[in-house]
Design a protein around this nucleic acid. Structure first.
Lengths: 124, 124
DNA sequence: CTATGTGCAAACGGTTTGCAGTCTA
DNA sequence: TAGACTGCAAACCGTTTGCACATAG
């Protein structure tokens, strides 16, 4: 990864993502950023999110559509089947699974993602 | 879910999916089915996969692109960062997580998905 | 017989990219 | 001042959908 500049756009994208725990989509984040940079394009949002993910500054959450997470501490998520939201689950992450999995299927395992499936308390 | 017909197409899609443990994409499955039904359309594949998922006959695996799993027993997956494959991990699933998560964040939690991140033994 | 299913092709929607001009370091 | 970055618009590509015809039950 070459010489990296901190542009006004990149800085504000990161700031806006750090303001929330809602894991916005690129489009939602674009709306948030546009309150401060009205002319920013969705393409710039995507390009910057990609760079920030590759630098490890933020996390990508895959699903029906991509969401982004400014919290890079290990944690789990709850996906609400009702409203589609992705909420943090403040639970101790399970240890030792990687080694077990490696024994069972070979290869090199770095970590795991865990999503709970259910209905969030807001929709219940 | 109304009156359900077992068409030639639906039957063969299910059969082809049961033949493999590779979690094919809709397009890959279409190629497989076309060896037996050369004129089947991708639209029909998608429509049938959707019905089969809703009936609980197969599972949908979300990610960069949708994949489908003919094995409906609870199990985990290894996502290879190198080749993009999704492989089964024959490991006991973790129990009791749902109750813990429900205590912590409320709502109603039915289950969890767990994906290991790493490099499969084929790419290592 | 009739509602469900199919093939086809066009539409959709999230994401990526080419380009010409801009701005950070 | 060079090369990274931006806004814009078009392209991309996986998925969905409308339609006229076919077919399972």
């Amino acid at each position: 990864m070459q010489d990296l500049r901190m542009t006004r756009q990149r800085k504000i994208i990161l700031e806006e993502l750090h303001k929330v725990t809602t894991h916005p989509t690129a489009y939602e984040l674009c709306q948030m950023v546009r309150t401060r940079l009205p002319r920013i394009s969705l393409g710039t949002i995507y390009r910057n999110l990609d760079i920030l993910v590759r630098r490890g500054d933020i996390n990508k959450i895959e699903g029906e559509e991509m969401r982004f997470d400014g919290n890079i501490c290990k944690h789990y998520h709850l996906r609400c089947q009702m409203c589609g939201s992705v909420e943090d689950v403040h639970l101790e992450t399970v240890n030792g699974l990687e080694r077990q999995a490696e024994e069972v299927c070979g290869g090199k395992i770095y970590g795991h993602h865990l999503d709970f499936i259910g209905i969030c308390k807001h929709c219940c």
